[in-house]
């Protein structure tokens, strides 16, 4: 059967098990969605547990699904659940032994990426004054329409004044603006991760960066948000202990 749009409505208890032949079906639970594709089962959780669907499950494009039986698909379903469990392990962290690898940093060099963006937009960051206060004034005077220039000046500020905590504050503020103004998750995440690398000894800024990363990943429906959520909880406890 070919379908586009709602497959199961919110509140409905699925009585039929459908397997996807082609196309994409989006499930949303607790405000986090994930897309299902070829070979996946639609609303498997609710079907097995005989529970109502939380939010509409929709085919986001023309999708072909077929009705299958639990008995025939039994072993395949176990395999699918094991695949889901692998996601759990990939997004889990050892709370006692957090290492930078746990932050899932992109392989691309962050500075190189920002340079590419800068050259594409033909915006010149220019030189930053040697005086710290003057440099801050230049950065903060830039409007939102020069956000990429601001990103580059913030980078220069961190290189020029590596010991200044203001660099961390600028990174958080600029990342938030990049996310809101440009809706560029990649640059925003890169800036926040840069903060984690450069200012890992300042928990209050790390906490803010991690909370923002959690929000961004959650918005894009990426389960990695759980990793940041856990790290944020640990930092929160540590910060409270420092009060």
């Amino acid at each position: 059967m070919k379908i586009e749009g709602v497959v199961f409505k919110a509140g409905e208890v699925p009585k039929t098990l459908f397997k996807i032949v082609s196309g994409t079906v989006r499930e949303t639970r607790n405000k986090t969605y994930h897309d299902l594709g070829h070979g996946d089962y639609v609303a498997l959780l609710e079907y097995l547990l005989e529970e109502p669907i939380q939010e509409n499950i929709v085919a986001t494009e023309e999708t072909e699904i077929i009705e299958v039986s639990l008995e025939d698909e039994y072993l395949n379903i176990i395999k699918r659940i094991i695949e889901l469990r692998k996601v759990i392990f990939e997004s889990s962290i050892d709370l006692e032994d957090i290492v930078l690898d746990d932050f899932n940093f992109e392989k691309v060099d962050i500075d190189k990426y920002l340079e590419q963006v800068e050259s594409l937009l033909t915006l010149s960051a220019g030189d930053l004054p040697d005086d710290r206060d003057e440099a801050l004034r230049v950065i903060e005077s830039l409007d939102d329409d020069k956000i990429i220039t601001k990103v580059n000046l913030v980078r220069s500020f961190i290189e020029k004044f590596p010991e200044e905590e203001e660099g961390a504050r600028l990174l958080i503020e600029t990342a938030a603006k990049v996310y809101i103004v440009l809706n560029d998750r990649y640059v925003a995440k890169s800036l926040l991760k840069k903060l984690l690398l450069h200012y890992s000894d300042i928990p209050k800024f790390c906490y803010e960066a991690i909370k923002t990363l959690e929000g961004i990943y959650r918005d894009e429906g990426n389960i990695i948000w759980r990793r940041y959520n856990k790290i944020a909880k640990i930092l929160e406890v540590k910060l409270r202990g420092n009060d």
Partner: peptide, 15 residues
Amino acid sequence: LESFMRRTAKVLGWI
């Protein structure tokens, strides 16, 4: 299968 799925869903924060 149901309990295997239920434990998975709880850890994923689905339920």
